[in-house]
Nucleic acid binder design. Structure first.
Lengths: 193, 193
DNA sequence: GCAATCCGTTAACATAGGTTAATGTGTTTT
DNA sequence: AAAACACATTAACCTATGTTAACGGATTGC
């Protein structure tokens, strides 16, 4: 049941059978159908989610109704609206499923309790957060200094699995451009080479 | 000497006098003159730096020689090239001082040792990383969905101190636009209202 | 105190990406 | 099987931001 989570945690820290058995008691399994929400903007984000199978996206919707994808999460990724999760403020992002998806959820209180009964888990999340920070840094760097075409090429290189799995319009949204523009960029790229 | 660091840490966790005295032994004080480098791209980033006084910036330089500011750090902020610091790979960013600056430095081994002798410090950094992640999320969100004008207004609101302290051209670089464009945007804003 | 440099402004022109709208195709719903 | 929908493509036109270049005031260095 918790195999995916277990092997992900074991890649960063070492836990015994019984320690991991204890860890699992803090998580709630949950399945989402394609298009189903895990979180809607305005609600408080109560859970941090580990994707065991499937694909999620988090996105904002502005006053014109335009969606902008902030993050994708496939197998072995964690997803939440971190700010809302940490502060209990209403979420600014929506999270929903791009495919039928299986998750393990943990709420903030359980997580804090887990930290205190098993400090190695805080260590695990600290390492995870470091990785997230470097990835975010990279993405910001890209937005500051790269053109849409360069960002698309970087995306292809960094997340080749995702390109196969999510509609092109969703990739465009993640890159901060319109689907028509991505289509044009792809055409130009194919003409170049 | 370590007052600024102490009060910053004490805002997140509680340390006794003697605990904090131990913590300080892990840090190296350092002063930088304006324009002096803390890190040059290509070198390995050995230190995580706490700004006690002054102002740093981290930035990339592309093949055309254009600089793009990834982050500012004033009093009470931490600065590093996180990826290089964690992996010992050559840094992709430069870090230098925009003002005469006073720092406390810690290297990776010292930090890891500090985590093990004082787990509360790992807790402190975990909380710090969470805050960093939410700020990065916000900035990415801004790049995906906001115009240069909106990003500038957000910057004014979020970092009013910085607008006073750093040259406008540096703010433009942080926003991902050219100084001339920021100048034009400011003009349009002043005409509107 | 003078020269050099940095910094912000402005303006004319260029371009990447947005907008609108039409078309085709495959997929879901009924 | 038909209708409705989701998704990608293309094209003509529009706009925000980039580019190049010139100017002037302020600051820094000698």
């Amino acid at each position: 049941m918790f195999d995916t989570l277990r092997s992900h945690i074991n890649r960063k820290i070492k836990l015994s059978e019984s320690e991991f058995a204890l860890v699992t008691t803090f998580f709630i399994p949950k399945k989402l159908r394609k298009k189903q929400y895990l979180l809607q903007a305005g609600d408080v984000c109560k859970y941090l989610a580990f994707v065991s199978k499937g694909c999620l996206r988090s996105y904002s919707v502005n006053d014109k109704g335009e969606e902008h994808i902030v993050q994708f999460a496939i197998e072995d990724w964690w997803m939440t609206d971190l700010k809302s999760f940490l502060t209990n403020e209403p979420a600014t992002y929506n999270i929903d499923a791009l495919e039928d998806t299986e998750l393990f959820l943990i709420d903030k209180e359980s997580q804090d309790k887990l930290y205190s009964v098993m400090p190695k888990i805080e260590h695990y999340f600290r390492i995870l957060l470091e990785g997230n920070n470097t990835a975010a840094q990279k993405r910001i760097s890209d937005f500051i200094s790269a053109s849409a075409e360069e960002r698309y090429l970087n995306f292809l290189k960094t997340y080749p699995e995702l390109v196969q799995r999510v509609p092109q319009s969703q990739v465009a949204s993640y890159l901060g451009i319109k689907p028509q523009s991505l289509s044009r960029i792809r055409k130009e790229l194919s003409e170049k080479k």
